[in-house]
Amino acid sequence: YIGGGTPTSLSAKQLDVLLTGVHRLLPTSTTKELTVEANPGDLTSEKLDILKSHGVNRLSMGVQTFDDRLLKKIGRKHSAQDVYDTIRLLEKKQFDNVSIDLIYALPGQTIESFRDTLNQALAFGLPHYSMYSLILENKTMFMNWVRQGRLELPSQESETQMFAEAMEAMEKAGHHQYEISNFATPGKESMHNLVYWNNENYFGFGAGASGYLGNQRYKNVGPIQHYLKPLRSNQRPIIETEELTLKNQIEEEMFLGLRKIEGVSLANFKEKFKKELTDVYQMILPELEEKGLAIIDENRLRLTSKGLFIGNDVFEKFLLEKE
């Protein structure tokens, strides 16, 4: 998976150099899914030819919304027309394994505007859609504007309605929800994303990338020159590491696994941690089941539809007492 920034902002020649290096240095011969993130308007016929020649078989495109007014408000450079032009180009190049990201609960977004975005997105008939609510980070321009009253976010009720309508529309269009924010036609689920939600290990290469190996999470230096400096003297460019305790690992297994619609396998949990999930969480499971938020079904613990709507509140229940 090549992303986290926007690889398609590189020139065709630079993309060629990047992907040549990836294939030379990493074991890609058995790779089933090779995804590149793209911005609408960045892709050209030449770039797509380069991507295809290097075995890229999936694109993830950050569309966010089809409302040009909102795109401008959130600082995106592309327009709705750019999305249509890019999709047309992808069709021409027979590049059909495409996912698009949409954001809901944007500043000033109405139910009608979101509904329109949803309809336009689904009209493309793509195999995969990701849907995220806007998350405001502290010390960002957006957060400051909200605090100053310069930006108004949709109400919690509107946000919930947007998500509910998205779930319903996706289901009608034949896209099953396999994770809280992700919808796919059967067989087109993101293998890359499932690595995260299955709480599996992964390498993170590049400036600002994060990885997870053994029971250690790490993060690389962000600014490119700072990242390159240690590499030039054969040092690893890691700025931050975190050793996960058994408690941390169990909590993450639950937070991540319960994002999946199928939930957490009791058998896998026991194999991984040598403990029964039902013993570890014996104090909270009856309460969650009684409230209709979670259920144990076919040897898996999963959230109900009601639980998915308030996922973060439910996840908090799986925090363990300090060791």
Rank of each mutant, 00 (worst) to 15 (best):
G4T: 05
P7A: 11
P7K: 11
V17C: 08
L18K: 03
V22Q: 07
L26E: 13
T30R: 13
T31D: 15
L34E: 13
T35K: 13
N39R: 13
N39L: 06
L43T: 00
D49M: 10
I50D: 00
L51V: 09
K52S: 14
K52P: 03
L59M: 06
G62D: 05
T65L: 09
D67Y: 10
K72N: 15
K77Y: 07
H78A: 10
S79C: 05
A80T: 06
Q81H: 10
D82L: 11
V83N: 05
Y84C: 06
I87P: 00
R88L: 07
L89C: 03
L89D: 00
K92W: 11
K92L: 09
S99R: 00
S99K: 00
D101C: 09
D101Y: 13
T110A: 00
R115F: 06
Q120I: 08
Q120G: 07
L122I: 10
H128T: 02
E137I: 03
N138R: 14
M141R: 11
M141G: 07
M143A: 12
N144T: 04
G149H: 12
R150W: 11
L151C: 05
Q156A: 14
Q156G: 11
E157F: 08
E159F: 12
A164C: 08
A166V: 10
Q177P: 01
Y178V: 06
I180M: 04
T185E: 08
K188Q: 15
M191I: 10
L194W: 08
N199M: 05
E200S: 14
E200Y: 14
G204Y: 09
G206M: 02
A207E: 12
N215I: 04
Y218Q: 13
K219Y: 06
V221Y: 05
P223A: 13
Q225N: 13
H226K: 14
H226P: 04
Y227E: 06
L228G: 02
P230R: 04
P230S: 10
L231T: 07
T241R: 15
N248A: 15
N248R: 10
I250A: 02
F255S: 04
G257L: 00
G257D: 01
I261K: 00
E262C: 04
E262A: 13
L266K: 02
E271C: 04
K274I: 06
E276M: 04
V280R: 02
V280M: 06
V280L: 09
Q282P: 06
Q282E: 12
M283A: 14
I284S: 01
P286I: 04
L288R: 00
E289N: 12
A294L: 02
I295F: 08
I296G: 03
R300K: 15
L301R: 08
K306F: 09
D313Q: 11
D313I: 05
V314K: 04
L320V: 09
